[in-house]
Computed example of a mutant assay.
Amino acid sequence: MDGETVLAALRAESQRLYEKVCAIPEGEWDRPSPCDPWTVREVFAHLTNAVDRVGSMLAEPEPEPSGALVTAAGYYAPDERFSTDANEVRIETAQDSAGWYADGRALAEHFDSVWRSVTTACAKEPPERRVRTRHGDPMLLSDFLVTRVVEVCVHGFDVAVGLGHEPWPTDEAADVVARLLLGGRPYDASVPVPGGGWDRTTFLRKATGRLPMTAAERAAERLGLRRLTLG
């Protein structure tokens, strides 16, 4: 996926998410999210940190153009980055950072500032810009931004469900995540899916573990579904 398309998706999904949470009552932030053990506040803090990481990466020296680059799909490989220990650090970091803000509105406003700053900075970078993840992986910035769209979109599902709402993904972000899951192909609801037909949002939720799959539905992997290891 080209960088401009991915960046547009990150902008659209981040704007949608901010608009959905900026005015919710303070008590709603402490509802449990389906991303156990996080509350809505904590999962929102996690995705805010995930987007904010882009700014830190851009401030670091660009990796030398040597060796293979990790792709967006490769970023979600089932290795030590998603081990039990790594996930415990993710959980604790989000819980700690959720407490940095006076209230949920302050956290939402910080997220709004972060995504705007990050997307503005990324728009100035050349298509071949490389970055290094906190795990040491060299990646194209455009590929790393795909992972940030996944973070905002998929954890946006967790926020929505935690608040008792239907998920609200934008078309732009849903297409980016679907193409990642399908090896570059867009999701086509007219293609039969084992176990029943899904709209794109249902497909995304099932494919990312946000909704359960039946044994018949898991046969969808034969249609080329990529499994992502998500923290």
Rank of each mutant, 00 (worst) to 15 (best):
R41A: 12
G195H: 01
R218P: 00
W100K: 11
V176R: 02
R132E: 12
G197T: 13
I24S: 07
V118E: 00
L223K: 11
H165A: 13
T133W: 08
T84M: 12
R41V: 08
Q95N: 05
K20C: 08
R134K: 13
L145I: 08
E109T: 09
A102R: 15
R129E: 05
V40Q: 07
L69A: 04
S113I: 00
L69Q: 01
E13G: 00
P126M: 11
S33E: 03
G156T: 07
R148Y: 11
A215I: 14
G209C: 07
R16T: 12
C122Y: 06
L141E: 04
V152F: 05
R226D: 06
D175C: 06
E80M: 06
V6Q: 02
F203N: 03
R16G: 02
F203M: 10
F157A: 03
T39Q: 11
A219K: 10
V146S: 02
L181I: 14
A77R: 14
L47H: 04
V54Y: 04
T133H: 05
D30P: 01
F44S: 14
G55V: 04
S33V: 07
H46S: 06
P186H: 10
P186T: 15
W198S: 01
T201G: 02
E128F: 08
E151L: 03
T208Q: 09
V150K: 01
G164E: 14
L58H: 02
A102G: 12
P212V: 06
T71I: 01
P61K: 14
G231L: 09
D30N: 14
T170F: 02
T229S: 14
S142L: 01
V161L: 14
H135G: 02
P192V: 03
L7P: 01
A207E: 03
L10F: 06
G104P: 03
G183E: 08
M139Y: 07
T208D: 12
E19I: 03
